[in-house]
C-alpha cells in the first residue's frame, strides 16, 4: 500500500487517499472510507471502475498532475505529498517568494526580461547555503523586490512575473 497522498482538482479541496493494490484491482481509502476500484486498459484509453460505477477515461500523467478525460470533461487532478506540501507552497507561478529568511546574493534578471521555466531568477543565501530561485513558468519579469545585499523574511516576495498577455488574433 502506498503512503497517503492528497488528491484534488487543481486548486480545489483535496482528499486523503491511500491505495492498496490486489492484482489489477485495488482498495482505495478516500477520506478514511474504503472503496473497491480498478483502472484497466480499454481501447485507446482506460476503463475506470469504482464500486458499481464504470466509466471510459483517458489519463495522462505529468509530474504531480494527473490529467483525466472522463464524464465528457477534462480534469486536472493534483497528487500532492502532504509532507512535501509545505516546502513547495512558497513558490507559485506568478510570484517567486522566499522559501526561508535570508540575504539576496545575486539578481540575474530585471523587469522586462523574458524568462523560461526553470531559469534562475535570483540567488539567495540562507543558513550559509545558497539557493537558486527559479521561474516556475515562462514569462516576463515584472518586478524584482529585493536588491543584492538586502535581507528578507520567509515568504517575502522576491520576483514577480507579468500576468500572461493575451496574444493577438482576429
Amino acid at each position: 500500500m502506498s503512503r497517503l497522498f492528497e488528491i484534488g482538482l487543481d486548486g480545489d479541496r483535496s482528499h486523503a487517499v491511500e491505495v492498496a493494490r490486489h492484482g489489477d484491482s485495488a482498495t482505495l481509502t478516500i477520506d478514511g472510507r474504503n472503496y473497491h476500484g480498478s483502472l484497466r486498459p480499454a481501447g485507446d484509453g482506460y476503463e475506470l471502475t469504482l464500486e458499481d460505477r464504470t466509466e471510459r477515461i483517458w489519463t495522462y500523467v505529468s509530474g504531480d498532475t494527473v490529467w483525466l478525460h472522463g464524464f465528457g470533461v477534462c480534469w486536472a487532478m493534483s497528487v500532492i505529498d502532504p509532507e512535501k506540501n509545505l516546502a513547495t507552497a512558497a513558490l507559485s507561478g506568478d510570484l517567486a517568494s522566499a522559501p526561508m529568511p535570508g540575504t539576496m546574493i545575486n539578481v540575474g534578471v530585471e523587469p522586462g526580461d523574458a524568462v523560461a521555466a526553470g531559469q534562475t531568477l535570483v540567488v539567495i543565501e540562507s543558513m550559509k547555503m545558497q539557493s537558486e530561485i527559479i521561474a516556475e513558468r515562462d514569462g516576463v519579469v515584472d518586478r524584482v523586490f529585493v536588491a543584492v545585499g538586502e535581507t528578507f523574511d520567509r515568504g517575502a516576495p522576491l520576483v514577480s512575473l507579468e500576468l500572461i498577455a493575451e496574444p493577438e488574433e482576429d
Binding site: V19, R21, L48, T59, L68
Partner: peptide, 24 residues
C-alpha cells in the same frame, strides 16, 4: 460527491505515486 470520488480514484490509480509494484 460520487463523481468527484471517481476522479480522485482514477487519479490515484493512474498516478505513479501509488506504485503498482506495491500490490499484495
Amino acid at each position: 460527491a460520487e463523481l468527484e470520488r471517481c476522479l480522485v480514484a482514477a487519479a490515484a490509480l493512474a498516478s505513479p505515486r501509488f506504485d503498482p509494484r506495491l500490490a499484495a
